[in-house]
Amino acid sequence: MTYPVLEVSDVTVRFGGVVAVDGASLTIKAGELIGFVGPNGAGKTTLMRVITGIIKPDEGQVLLGGKDLAGLAVNQRIRAGLALAQQIVQPLKAMTLLENVALACGAEKTRNPFSAMVSFDRDAENRRALELLSRVGLREAANLEPAKLPLGYLKRLEVARALALNPQLLLLDEPLAGLNQSEASELADLIKALNADGLPILLIEHNLREVMRICPQVYVQDQGRPLAFGPTEEVMSRPDVIQAYMGGNTNAAGQ
């Protein structure tokens, strides 16, 4: 039998008294593009961080290709095939955008410190980094440093850097935030194209217009709890989902 790409089961995360994620379960199969939505504070980013190992869950498990990720550090999970574009952008500040991406392109060279020590050539990585930057519309900015660039640029840098890792599953946390209308739909098109090439993607996004446009399926979370999972049109027209969005997160669900 073949395993799903990602299987999250019954994950719970508590921060002191706050239950940020409360029994979340989610499955991504080969080739799927899943929109992950929910109001602010729904625990989306927290669940993403559990998947990448930045946060340890209080309960539940995460399987990647059938393999339990428990006990694996962030970098080991990346090596196992995950890549994450973060909601809160973190460019390497002292490097140009190209250098940021090329470092990720060199994952094979950086795997073992001793081979990194005797590797000098960066040409292939620089070329591939430039290609990726072009794909996200940042070719012109390749040699600039992140400090002076607007958020929309850094969001796309996050995406390019994640792609550079050649992941088996791409995790995107609000990549469209900070982009204008046309930039957003361009990047959404790219996400769709990457998925069409076979890359499974989990996309957290508040831009529902683009989510409705490109994601065949959505997973909705509210106040840390899974609320709905299924075909986008169907799920997004459900009254409880609309209510969760409209009513904010005061006491909409579960009471």
């Binding site: 990448t52 930045i54 550090a73 970098n75 470092l103 950086t110 850097r161």
Partner: peptide, 15 residues
């Protein structure tokens, strides 16, 4: 990269 931001190094797969 580590001197710059070690959390980023980790999410780029660096030990």
């Amino acid at each position: 990269s580590i001197a710059d931001n070690e959390d980023v190094s980790r999410i780029l797969g660096i030990d």
